[in-house]
């Protein structure tokens, strides 16, 4: 990832409206984010957001401190300063009506972590899963061939090795069926 980007990972409670709260915060504070992805984790009650921020246009510390203020946000960490893996996925549909174009596509797929996932008479879909920079390069290579449709997932990231970002938090069981001491009941 280029130096003017910061990747921030937030663990949030998996509750309705949490994404809305984060989006509303960004809107209200006039933050610009390059990408924001949300997905499940190995725990049903915890979701994980990966947020890529342009540090030239934003004060990242402010964004992190404001994220922490949201009641449903469990934990926020910067990843960019630590060894980490980050992946972006793109599906790119290119026009491959002639053999030249098709050969060009296969060449690109050989040189980069990209593969053809759908092939028709007129168009081919290329899937590329890599760091954002590499995805960017692949798209640039495919562009002259003729891109007709494209979608990217945005970046997901994880610290390398034993840098584990997880939470011990268990939600309170409001139905109170099985008692579990002073902290209420665990689901």
């Amino acid at each position: 990832m280029s130096e003017n980007k910061q990747t921030v990972v937030a663990l949030v409670e998996n509750k309705p409206g949490v994404l809305n709260r984060v989006a509303s915060l960004f809107r209200r504070r006039n933050y610009n984010v390059d990408s924001l992805t949300v997905g499940r984790t190995h725990k049903a009650h915890v979701s994980r957001m990966t947020i890529v921020i342009d540090v030239e246009r934003n004060d990242v510390r402010q964004i992190v401190e404001n994220l922490k203020k949201l009641v449903n946000v469990i934990d926020v960490k910067y990843l960019s300063n630590e060894p980490h893996i980050s992946r972006d996925l793109a599906l790119v549909k290119v026009r491959t009506e002639n053999a030249d174009a098709y050969n060009h596509v296969t060449e690109v797929c050989e040189r980069y972590p990209a593969r053809i996932v759908d092939m028709g008479h007129e168009v081919t879909i290329v899937e590329v899963t890599a760091s954002s920079a590499v995805v960017e390069t692949v798209i640039d290579q495919l562009r002259p061939i003729g891109i007709v449709e494209m979608v990217r997932t945005g970046v997901v990231a994880m610290g390398r090795g034993t840098r584990i970002q997880d939470t011990q938090y268990e939600p309170v069981n409001v139905r109170g069926d099985q008692s579990n001491g002073s902290n209420g009941v665990l689901i």
Binding site: E13, I74, V76, P171, V172, N183, G184
Partner: peptide
């Protein structure tokens, strides 16, 4: 709910 409020973050 007599128990304390738990808010993880």
């Amino acid at each position: 709910p007599e128990y304390d409020v738990v808010l993880p973050g």
